[in-house]
């Protein structure tokens, strides 16, 4: 397994470098000059030139790109153009918030979605099934921005149960934002779990297990669920990426100091160090989560473990029958 992990980590490096190059090019070649925005109304052509020199923006494209990459490798994310504040510090402060938000949202979606999906598959066409599908459709149709504000209005203003903004109250502050963010994903999990379970339940080996006399809950819990979980696990990887990006909406509505809002403000100000720093960190997080998902596959599904083994990446113990 270690060999597999190391190989995946090595592949990550050129991917991240490529991402940095693409984003850097986009920032460079789209219109908009950070210096004019910093100097504002007092800008004159001479001042603009002075400021550009001060920030090192007069150097050629490739020079700046290479300098930047070398700095990142050393762990130096640079400073923001407007304030001179350290980008690395800002990211370090905000990353935990976004990570917590994303991970808790996925957990919430999984905890609510999987049982619901299983139930509706087992009791296909019953009231529970219809309710689950309806629930899933409504959730996925709600725009995040609207849902967030509605939750604030109901649970914060009217009922006073939750704070309307900020992370000051610990875990409580994350409840409403997590509900907002996980809405779409919960819908996906419910439907995916349901359809995977349905597929599995009708398989021959399930019929065999029933014939052998296994209890229904044993069949569902041990055999069916395990097989149905694979596609769901895939979506965890995909959605983690979507959540890290989509966290911007929840962060804005609930005023959470996360990476998403930092990224957006960096883009608006065309602050290259901020944008590149955030993108690098987000890309790395997503890659690492996807790696974890792939490793988890091997433990859940022996067939996949065998696949890795055949590629020489994993050692599999074979018990010899005596």
């Amino acid at each position: 397994m270690l060999k597999y992990i190391v190989r995946r980590l090595l592949i990550m490096l050129p991917i991240i470098l490529g991402i940095i190059f693409i984003v850097f090019s986009i920032l460079e070649f789209t219109p908009g000059d950070p210096v004019s925005m910093i100097l504002g109304q007092d800008a004159t052509p001479e001042l603009i030139k002075l400021k550009r020199e001060e920030l090192g923006l007069n150097k050629p494209f490739l020079t700046r790109y290479i300098t930047y990459v070398l700095d990142i490798v050393r762990g130096d994310f640079g400073t923001m153009y407007a304030s001179g504040n350290s980008v690395g510090e800002a990211i370090a402060r905000r990353l935990p918030v976004t990570l917590e938000l994303s991970i808790l949202s996925i957990l919430l979606a999984v905890i609510v979605g999987i049982p619901l999906g299983v139930l509706s598959a087992v009791k296909q066409y019953s009231i529970i099934d219809i309710f689950s599908i309806l629930f899933a459709m409504i959730l996925s149709a709600m725009p995040g921005f609207w849902l967030g504000l509605m939750l604030i209005l109901i649970f914060s203003t009217k009922l006073g149960l939750f704070p309307s903004f900020g992370v000051g109250d610990g875990l409580i502050s994350f409840i409403l934002p997590c509900i907002t963010l996980s809405a779409t994903y919960t819908a996906v999990i419910v439907r995916m779990t349901r359809s995977c379970m349905l597929e599995v339940i009708n398989q021959d080996y399930v019929r065999t297990a029933r014939a052998k006399g296994a209890t229904e809950s044993h069949i569902i819990g041990k055999h069916a669920l395990r097989n149905a979980m694979l596609p769901v696990l895939t979506t965890v990887g995909m959605y983690f990426g979507a959540l890290m990006g989509g966290a911007v909406i929840a962060e804005t509505v609930f005023s959470l100091p996360g990476l998403g809002t930092l990224l957006v403000s960096g883009i608006t100000a065309k602050d290259t160090p901020t944008v590149l720093g955030c993108v690098t960190v987000i890309a790395t997080s997503i890659s690492l989560i996807n790696l974890s998902v792939d490793v988890a596959y091997a433990y859940i599904d022996p067939r996949i473990k065998a696949q890795y083994a055949s590629m020489g990446l994993v050692k599999v113990k074979v018990r010899k029958r005596k």
């Binding site: 504000l149 604030i152 203003t157 903004f165 509505v253 609930f254 005023s255």
Partner: peptide
């Protein structure tokens, strides 16, 4: 000074006394 980035949330916060 509480930082509230969204205009709607700001109005809600004032309304609820936060």
């Amino acid at each position: 000074y509480k930082i509230i980035t969204d205009a709607n949330t700001m109005a809600v916060a004032l309304q609820s006394g936060d």
